[in-house]
Write a protein that binds this DNA or RNA. Structure first.
Lengths: 143, 143
DNA sequence: AACCAATTTTTGAATAATTCAACTAATAGA
DNA sequence: TCTATTAGTTGAATTATTCAAAAATTGGTT
């Protein structure tokens, strides 16, 4: 990704310390939640309101700089790898999110068999399962 | 689906008026939210606590009788068509959910190109777009 | 270099969906 | 029918997110 300042300017956005820090934090914490990112930003610039974090994340997502994903049972997560079509592996026990490229070329599963009159603009795929770490040590065994 | 009483018994569950009504409401309101289902249940049996609705829906989902889906920006929805692998078309403007069968056989897109060590148990596909109705009448045009 | 209108951020409260916990009621097998 | 167990009700708590109004900052303008 280009430097954050250029990214913001390139989209005609005002450049502010908060937005820069949010963008950098999102890049450093791929698939981070608003809360995670707020903490990371605070570690970098000292203070930011949660509202400003939400505003910046919404703006960056709207401009296509970040991609918002909302796995079931999780708060919204923000993915800096936006624009390219990739999908997600999500661990049912620890929630870890890992990027996966689409299996066959760009859009094999992206075409519904029957579109039922819908005009489809995106196909989102989530693979649910157990991550390597959680497979290794299953939940506390009973007595 | 079999009659609700058999369904519950077949899974070794206690048969209660609340559970029966929740199951019937979920079948009559495919892709309904907990709230929608609570209203439908109240229309049928008079009263039920929201907590009982949540409990019943969680239990039915856990037993694989219903399938819980949680599209971004929506409360959890419950799909009576569980067990068979189908996916969802979701309208970005009105939220309407429509079932779609998987394009090629049972699991073409269900195999990630690279599983990164995960043990995958489910692939969830959501097609986002505009439903026929919302395509016909776009949001109020500006002046 | 300072000004100003527009945009951002802060602050504090509100909301929606869901869950926790303690008490009461109903179920199903003995 | 009795009763241990399982469910349901009630009421409050939590989490993630949004709303709204006041204060601060931005980036072009004089």
């Amino acid at each position: 990704m280009l430097d954050p300042v250029s990214v913001l300017q390139g989209h005609g956005l005002h450049v502010t310390a908060q937005r820069l820090a949010v963008l950098r934090a999102a890049v450093r914490h791929p698939h981070g939640s608003a809360d995670t990112i707020a903490s990371a930003v605070r570690a970098e610039i000292g203070a930011i309101s949660l509202q400003a974090v939400y505003d910046a994340l919404a703006l960056l997502s709207e401009k296509g700089i970040l991609r918002r994903i909302q796995p079931a049972g999780s708060p919204a997560l923000f993915d800096p790898r936006a624009g390219d079509s990739h999908h997600h592996l999500i661990c049912r026990s620890c929630g870890k999110v890992t990027d996966v490229d689409c299996a066959v070329g760009s859009a094999p599963c992206l075409t519904a068999s029957e579109h039922h009159g819908y005009e489809i603009d995106e196909a989102e795929v989530v693979y649910w399962g157990a991550c390597p770490n959680c497979r290794a040590k299953p939940p506390v065994p009973g007595p």
